[in-house]
């Protein structure tokens, strides 16, 4: 005779399962709640000021009046320079580390170690380094160029580590079967590994952009405070994050424009993220040729 086993009664750990589920939902609520709160606060404090004029005018009266046109231009230029320099260098380094040298080689370990150190350096130290090296030693002075290059140094560790991890996550079997089909390393990399790793690379890129757009300390001593419209890359130009910092710390009565500028910064980041994601997905779909 088989023992009769009923299917009624309480399953094991029912309470624990439910508690953990509840806890996870609570955490999610906290995270999105914080973001929502910040956003609502910003809209409440600066939403009224937002207008086309605010986006295009130059700041007047230390930012209390006027807009942030010049600030936006400086911000975009600094970001552009930082990415133009950091992306090729960082992504090439990642490819080298993940694809062209053995993981445990001396060079690989050395590069990875120095990047780890770099990742732990506070941004103010990058600022001082950028000031000493780009502004003084290379004679760029307080300039958008100097600020962009300093930011590029700061972004390198993020870009390299995310991109390298992305490539390493691609199954080895793809490399082996591609090689077994007589494909070269570079062809395998560009037609197969990069498209597969693209989401990880995109995540690193977006993280980097966010980091760069929020940076103040590293830019204080390099791209500087000047809030005029920059006429060349060698002009000083104040970036948004620094403008917000200055308005809220040094300018009495600058609260409303500070709120509005912060709102613009967040919207700018959202827009950049959306565009970057779309581009990467489009590229990935085209490379993988699947719907």
């Amino acid at each position: 005779m088989y023992k009769q086993i009923g299917v009624t009664g309480k399953p094991n750990h029912l309470l624990r399962d439910q508690m953990i589920r509840l806890l996870i939902y609570l955490m999610v609520l906290c995270v999105s709640g914080v973001f929502l709160w910040i956003l609502l606060d910003l809209i409440h404090g600066g939403g009224a000021l937002l207008s086309w004029d605010f986006l295009t005018d130059v700041p007047r009266d230390a930012g209390r009046a006027g807009g942030i046109g010049s600030i936006l231009i400086s911000t975009l230029l600094v970001l552009l320079i930082a990415l133009l320099v950091a992306l090729p260098v960082g992504w090439a380094t990642a490819m080298l580390l993940a694809e062209f040298i053995p993981a445990m080689s001396l060079l690989g370990r050395w590069v990875r170690y120095s990047l780890q150190v770099l990742a732990g350096v506070p941004s103010i130290v990058f600022g001082l380094f950028g000031y000493a090296f780009f502004s003084i030693y290379l004679g760029m002075g307080f300039s958008i160029l100097s600020g962009g290059l300093t930011l590029a140094c700061m972004l390198l560790p993020i870009l390299v580590s995310t991109a390298e991890a992305g490539l390493r996550a691609v199954p080895e079997s793809y490399r082996l079967s591609a090689a077994a089909l007589g494909m070269s390393r570079t062809a395998t990399l560009f037609h197969l590994l990069l498209p597969v790793a693209a989401p990880a690379w995109a995540a690193g890129l977006l993280l980097g952009i966010g980091r760069a757009a929020a940076e103040t300390a590293a830019l204080m001593f390099t791209s500087g405070y000047v809030d005029r419209m920059p006429e060349s890359l060698l002009d000083s130009g104040r970036v948004l994050a620094l403008h917000i910092f200055d308005l809220s710390m040094n300018v009495p009565g600058g609260d409303a424009p500070a709120y509005a500028s912060a709102l613009v910064l967040i919207i700018l980041l959202l827009v950049i993220n959306l565009i970057a994601m779309q581009l990467i997905h489009f590229w990935q779909r085209r490379k993988l040729n699947t719907e």
Binding site: Y174, S177, A179, A180, L181, L192, T290
Partner: peptide, 26 residues
């Protein structure tokens, strides 16, 4: 050499591409 000597692995290893492109890429 590897073009002349093809290989099939133990676990099927199609690329994460379309069927067509799996053959076209090499």
């Amino acid at each position: 050499l590897r073009k002349q000597i093809g290989m099939v692995f133990q676990k099927p290893t199609p690329f994460p591409l379309s069927i067509q492109r799996n053959i076209a890429l090499p």
